[in-house]
Design a protein around this nucleic acid. Structure first.
Lengths: 197, 197
DNA sequence: CCTACCGATCGGTAGG
DNA sequence: CCTACCGATCGGTAGG
């Protein structure tokens, strides 16, 4: 029954990708060996190759899945009727939630994409650049409508996206505030600033 | 003349560390080989070992030099008489300027420190944690004095420090705003927020 | 899914 | 500073 065989293969592939995301985040792509990964999955290294084509393919899967999720949400926001500041806030919240709940993969896509090889590398860099430009576009609309103060939009994008990657520290922290409080604090600081007033 | 020999050795060591910082940033610590590094320095791989003890030692030098610079500036701020918000702003500016002018080393210390080995790894993690706690302390003083709004101080630290690492994108950007404009925009967004008002 | 193994490359050393 | 080389480990394949 080929249907069952496909399910088995693909679910084992998902286990491999999920364990790989965990290891790539902890040790980095280059410092993670296929023998490390095999041990975590519970098979010999050679057996991994029945499910995946190469180490490079695993990284590709992780990076492009994450990229597609973010691009899909961005497009929803572009087509929505909200105010620009609400769109920016929603995108920020989406990033925060992804970083909280899909931490391993999101972090790997953010930090390890440099180890992709062409043509995937160029493709990924293009997608990344496009995403940032379109997000900057939304911010610029907000500035034009005077909902957002006159700042350099690409700089705002850079701050937002990198601030979110700080959630890494939250994950590692012993005495954490709740995910809800984290999200609330991050949105307030980025939207309203630090200064009291 | 041992004095001259020492100078020659230490300046060659500086060249090695500087080229290593560049490569570690571009490719990551694990993906940079000593043969890569040797080629960039202009010698054979074996010759590097007349100046440095190991690949690990190079990373240690980079990470602890950067850590010491930040810790020194933090201590200056702790001992200064400015308002808390001015202290936070000065620390933010120090991070931004370091990231602009000592980009390679600062970026490596920020992203590649996981590849340190004990006892250096534990030492670095402790310093990092201490730095963040003390910066959070300054922010908490600002909250107590109502100069800073009531937010979770560790979350503010996390946002500030990670936002600054976004300067990486600025370095890679073709059509950059000036370093001064970048600094001004980053400080405004983080201190005053995005929303117009 | 395993055993057995490949060529390439790694960080590092010996010796001059 | 170089040539020559070491043992270890890498990603991946053959064959069953």
């Amino acid at each position: 029954m080929p249907a069952i065989k496909t399910n088995r293969n693909s679910s084992k592939k998902e286990v491999i990708i999920s364990k790989a995301a965990k290891l790539f985040r902890e040790k980095g792509f280059s410092a993670t060996s296929m023998r490390d990964l095999a041990e975590n999955v519970g098979v010999e290294a050679a057996s991994l190759y029945n499910h995946i084509r190469s180490k490079a393919e695993i990284l590709q899967e992780i990076c492009f899945r994450v990229a597609n999720q973010f691009m899909t949400h961005l497009e929803e926001m572009e087509n929505s009727k909200q105010s620009s500041i609400a769109k920016v806030q929603s995108i920020l919240q989406f990033h925060i939630r992804q970083m909280i709940h899909n931490y391993e993969a999101v972090h790997v896509a953010d930090r390890e994409w440099k180890h992709l090889t062409d043509p995937y590398l160029s493709n990924f860099k293009t997608q990344r650049k496009t995403y940032r430009q379109r997000l900057a576009g939304i911010i610029e609309q907000g500035i034009a409508k005077k909902e957002i103060k006159k700042i350099d939009a690409p700089t705002a994008v850079l701050i937002m996206l990198h601030a979110v990657s700080g959630i890494e520290s939250w994950h590692r922290s012993k005495q954490k505030i709740s995910a809800e409080q984290l999200e609330e604090n991050m949105v307030i600081i980025l939207v309203e600033g630090l200064r009291a007033g």
